[in-house]
Design a binder for these strands. Sequence first.
DNA 1: AGCGTGGTGTTCGGGTTCGGTAAGGACGCG
DNA 2: CGCGTCCTTACCGAACCCGAACACCACGCT
Lengths: 227, 227
Amino acid sequence: MDQTRGLVLVVEDEPAISDLVRRYLTAAGFGVHLETRVAGALEAVRRLRPAVVLLDVGLPDGEGTEVCRAMRDAGDWTPVLFVTARDDEVERVLGLELGADDYVTKPFSPRELVARVKTVIRRSSAPIGPKVARDGDVALDPGSRTLTVDGEVRHLTTTEFNLLEVLMTAPGKVFDRAELMSRAWGQADYGSSRTVDVHVAQLRAKLGDHCPVETVRGIGYRARKRT
Amino acid sequence: MDQTRGLVLVVEDEPAISDLVRRYLTAAGFGVHLETRVAGALEAVRRLRPAVVLLDVGLPDGEGTEVCRAMRDAGDWTPVLFVTARDDEVERVLGLELGADDYVTKPFSPRELVARVKTVIRRSSAPIGPKVARDGDVALDPGSRTLTVDGEVRHLTTTEFNLLEVLMTAPGKVFDRAELMSRAWGQADYGSSRTVDVHVAQLRAKLGDHCPVETVRGIGYRARKRT
DNA sequence: AGCGTGGTGTTCGGGTTCGGTAAGGACGCG
DNA sequence: CGCGTCCTTACCGAACCCGAACACCACGCT
């Protein structure tokens, strides 16, 4: 098992899930180390210096969120990807305080999990410095989760920020609504709902003329490409 | 039957369903191979190397889950999409035990099925470079769904873009009107109407002299072949 | 060359689909 | 209980597709 792409620390107590995750991650070229408790997790992070930590929220001896918080308190900003059982845990996990990088909800598609691990790594291994997506006057900082327009900070809700982040980190690329749902909400929704549209409208209202999001009729949306 | 978007292996014993699925997938540009038994499925996977496997859970000679498990055990990570009859099969199929990539429950809308197949393929395929179809000054980018002529962006409607994309991704190949309808519109039914001609006219109007679409009298249209 | 026929280019209005938006309910949080 | 946020629904205007109708062109025949 070579780990050409880096080591993933998996903290998960259910063997059924951890086995599955291990198989997929190793098949994708990652190394995998497994912990089942909060207790051992922190120690493992320090010792192994993984590229990503995959954290189950519900563990036998505590919550995965504790691990993340402890890491951040110790100055460790290794990317963390949460696995949540219920949707209503999502809000808590994705809050500003915690510093989670992404999350997936059970039951999840293993392949999607791998895809998210890859993107998290790619994001974190990008050139250091203020990692901001920008478009003219608009600057988006995923680290502090803040948006500045004309040098002036504007408040965005969690959903709005996620949505704008997805769009602006791939300028020019067109996302259909299902894909936006999947990326910004963490769950796929193939029903015909106008949720995405409403939040895009919110973004436009808040950003005014600066809003880089444009409509692609019949398909979805995309962020204006900087030329 | 050519398969511009890849081959889908459908394992399904009910002809009513498999016929429907085949129609929609081929209309969407996928190649389709049908198996009705667990027995033949594995062999087909090995031989045909499909881009996706669409597995019915309930088959005459076993469960579709066996196929998935056998594939994974053999080191085959081809994306698998399950079709389940009952909701309570979902948990078992998705992630928790098996490593399916997605699922649909009967009865499903064919449109949704196609959307999911596309999603699964997108997730599994490696990060894509900008694959642009070009002809001289004309460049077509499927990712951003933009058309540039002489470096200047022109707006195309969804239908126009799809049509031009179909033609330009197979330069030199002649398409009759029914085939164009099927590829660009995603539906097979075709009365004798002049709809295609109208949109070709629109393309020519928007692209002017640069338009690579030429008429093949008595047959249909083709994109000029650049060598 | 003239002419006829079948195929194609083009125009245009009706009907439909799609996206913007506003209003209201659900939910969690303080 | 008030507040903020999210999601749904319904309505409306605009963009767009389609089909028909008509003009035009290519080709073959006399």
